[in-house]
Design a protein around this nucleic acid. Structure first.
Lengths: 297, 297
DNA sequence: AATTACTATTGAAAATATCTATAGTTAGAG
DNA sequence: CTCTAACTATAGATATTTTCAATAGTAATT
């Protein structure tokens, strides 16, 4: 089925006139005549009959006309859909994030993006770096926001968009709670409740203390910051978590925080994406919201 | 929306491979690459992304792919529909007929046509010649079967397909019922119940007696042969109708018939059609059934 | 009979689709 | 880590298709 021919036929059927069809197709009348004939030859069936000067559709012509109507309606809708994409009236942003970024940094930023582009679908996957980078490699997400840590796959690119500091958190009932800073050696006497290995914060903290030849006592591993905070609150141990992850608990005085002297626990938060990825406009926009908004906080 | 480009895109989306798409489109791979790029340029949106060697559809690509699927499905269905027309699995025959042909000749013939082509729609319009020829001129029917009578419009063509004889019918209780023939003069003493002027049988009969300088007494005009037969049966008068219109009544001895000596009441039954009409195959077939079958009777 | 309106035909041009050959990449194998 | 195989992009050339202007032919109308 030749669609150029079909379009000419469709217009002839619509106006029941070759010259009127030509006018509305912005092509010459002989072209229309030829195209309709070609279609008839291709399909081996008469589509149009002319009695005297009047133009009629044959039975086959009427039937084909219905199909053509449907087809060109769909094509028109497809064009409108593409326009909607350009206008951000539809679209989607698929992103991944590490725990800290996903829970404590992104929701608010994505919320303000969504407020400005309410028709755009946002799907956020939270997971550890390995999980998230695999999603990037499989092109299941467009980009990700994850903390410094594991070496990236060679196919991925990254750029730092903000920094995040890890601090020691303890129960307000803990002896250290009255201080604002501790030394590395103070850590040896504590019981730690940490994130699992493979999480950015665990890697950063552990590498840092190893560098200083200190050994610590890790009592429990939770893969969830909220669970860690509960445990610390109940004075079951201390932990090292992102500065941004316990604001509420500090306000309510259920958690106290301290800096650890001599340890560099500032880590980069990276925007990560596949090296070959070309971002759609809506994605670029979303990234703009994130990279601009993330520092204001 | 260029459908050649869309088709290439559709195949790439289907196989997620340019070379595989090319293979299945029976064109070269560079052609596919170019066409997809042209579509992207036309729509101003990326449809396909390639990360490493893998091909993915973008969000816009996925959305367009759905439309393309629908469109090409419809095109395929349209092709099948055209094939169905060639195979007589669908189609229609629109025909008109005069009273005699429409009621007493065609139904049986159309029935046997329909038995052989059960999927073909048959629409028969019965009416007087003027009505039917107007339908032909308006291209609302493909052809018609009507009796000799009125002069045809210059745009119509006709060919005789059979002959039909008009005879005198009387009640079995009528004095003439014992005869098999009457003379023209016998008609003067009778009361006639005839079809309306404009009907072929009335024109033929009336012209014939005028030629012989006879005057008859027309008591009633019915535009329906069945009504005329009832009235004749009840001995309310006599009539002149087609030989083929009272077979049952003759068998059941409620009507008797006689030839009228010296009157030529044999008329032609014509197949009539617009001079520019090109018959579809199914119509040709139907006409064949009618013109062959009508003589066997 | 002349005019107008519409469609078909013709021959030429422009645009498009398509090809082959080949270059450039990537992924996987050795 | 290099080599090979598989895939896509590019370039240049050709074939096909679309398109046009000019005009002929045909019907309907004045």
């Amino acid at each position: 089925m030749n669609f150029t021919h079909l379009r000419s036929f469709y217009y002839v059927g619509k106006y029941l006139s070759f010259s009127e069809a030509a006018k509305n197709l912005y092509i010459s009348q002989p072209t229309v005549s030829i195209q309709v004939r070609r279609l008839e030859e291709e399909l081996q069936v008469k589509l149009i009959e002319q009695l005297g000067k009047k133009v009629y559709l044959t039975d086959a012509g009427k039937r084909l006309y219905s199909y053509a109507t449907e087809i060109f309606k769909l094509a028109k809708e497809a064009n409108l859909m593409i326009n909607d994409i350009s206008d951000f009236n539809i679209g989607q942003v698929l992103l991944g994030a590490g725990t800290t970024a996903g829970i404590y940094l992104l929701p608010e930023l994505l919320g303000s993006f969504k407020a400005d582009y309410p028709k755009v679908e946002i799907k956020l996957q939270i997971g550890n770096s390995k999980h998230i980078t695999q999603r990037l490699l499989d092109n299941e997400i467009d980009f990700a926001v994850i903390g410094e840590g594991l070496d990236l796959d060679l196919d991925l690119r990254s750029q730092s968009i903000t920094k995040d500091e890890l601090v020691l958190i303890v129960s307000p009932n803990h002896p250290l709670a009255i201080k604002t800073e501790v030394s590395i050696l103070d850590l040896c006497n504590e019981t730690f409740i940490l994130r699992e290995r493979g999480s950015s914060s665990r890697e950063i903290f552990e590498n840092s203390i190893i560098k200083n030849n200190v050994k610590i006592n890790v009592a429990m591993e939770f893969n969830c910051v909220e669970a860690i905070k509960k445990a610390v609150s109940a004075n079951l141990g201390v932990s090292v978590v992102s500065n941004s992850s316990f604001k509420l608990e500090k306000q309510q005085n259920v958690i106290a925080s301290l800096k650890i002297k001599d340890l560099d626990l500032v880590r980069n938060i990276y925007l990560v994406y596949h090296k070959d990825k070309e971002f759609a406009n809506v994605i670029k926009n979303c990234i703009k919201y994130i990279s601009l908004g993330i520092d204001i906080k």
